[in-house]
Nucleic acid binder design. Structure first.
Lengths: 178, 178
DNA sequence: CGAAATTATTTTAAGCCTAAAATGTTTTTA
DNA sequence: TAAAAACATTTTAGGCTTAAAATAATTTCG
């Protein structure tokens, strides 16, 4: 269905500089990346629901808390998960109701809410995390180790590019405000 | 912050086969891919809102219709966008209200709704699509052509792996039903 | 032919998500 | 110190999203 090589492989006669306004390759790259992400996300969502009767946002939030020993604030979690504060508030509310997460004001700064996994939450997460890791491995089973390593490296470069582009644009906007 | 090479590069003493249950590399790969996708998606969402007062689901839906000459059914769009039918119904409703999309029953099969862009919708999309392509190119500006081509190829392999794993699991389930 | 199965879409109920406004708390500064 | 600014979180209003049930139309097959 797709024929990437026809437009991605440039021979000597067809240099990028000779097609000034053409950014189709980047667009195709993005659409393919989005397809992969969506396929994985949907599949993980389905399996979490079927096997653990839970949702991906809940799992992701618990995963963050599991990594932390002393607990995390709402703001820290929202930054890590790249979602809004209000969203964290809502998802946490559900997890607290179910006894999986504990939430309490920090004694020295009452603006801050410290979130931690309860013993039950930690146990439940451990079970899910093992299965989750297997699922991901299963989904990537068609790639060998070198391919995985290379993809990881290229996505690292991509991340750097994205951060630069996004930060650069934020700077532009700030300059306009001043 | 991240040190991929420490776990991704395996020397002769540390073969993958000697760590049977370890799928950490795949997990790290997935988390990095998700980070990239989320960064891009959030940025595009923000720019669509700021510059065109619209949303990504609306843009994506219009993009599908723009590619089609004769129009598409609700089912076709939902399959292409990998979202539920009900979702398409809702987003289309908004676009119809705004005069960007036309919706009419197919004359030969009245179950089917044919969706097309209106002239206004096509014009509005053209403007947005040009900007969108520029934004994507800007976000990937840190990657050179070979990196883009290689990433595209590896994501193609990933897509194949995903489809195989997901289809394989669906077959298992079907076998269980029989 | 007509009942049953299939197909396409919409509706419903519930949860996720955001931006922006509101609330409560702490820090800065005049 | 008191007002102002900054900060952390929650609330609000609205849109997106899903799965599952409901609706409506067509096709299959007994």
């Amino acid at each position: 269905m797709e024929t990437p090589s026809s437009s991605l492989i440039l021979d000597r006669e067809t240099k990028a500089s000779e097609r000034p306004g053409d950014h189709k390759d980047e667009l195709r790259l993005w659409l393919r990346m989005l397809t992969c992400s969506t396929l994985i996300e949907t599949e993980i969502r389905n399996r979490l629901r079927e096997e653990f009767k839970t949702t991906l946002p809940r799992f992701d939030l618990m995963a963050q808390l599991d990594k932390s020993v002393v607990g995390m604030t709402v703001g820290e979690v929202s930054q890590r998960l790249m979602v809004s504060n209000g969203n964290v508030t809502a998802v946490v509310a559900g997890l607290v109701t179910d006894g999986l997460v504990d939430k309490r004001s920090a004694p020295q700064d009452r603006r801050v809410q410290i979130l931690t996994l309860t013993a039950q939450g930690r146990k439940a997460f451990k079970l899910m995390a093992e299965r989750h890791e297997d699922w991901i491995a299963e989904l990537f089973a068609g790639l060998d180790q070198p391919a995985i390593a290379q993809l990881f490296r290229l996505l690292g470069e991509t991340k750097t590019s994205l951060h630069r582009a996004i930060a650069g644009r934020a700077d532009e906007a700030a300059k306009g405000d001043a």
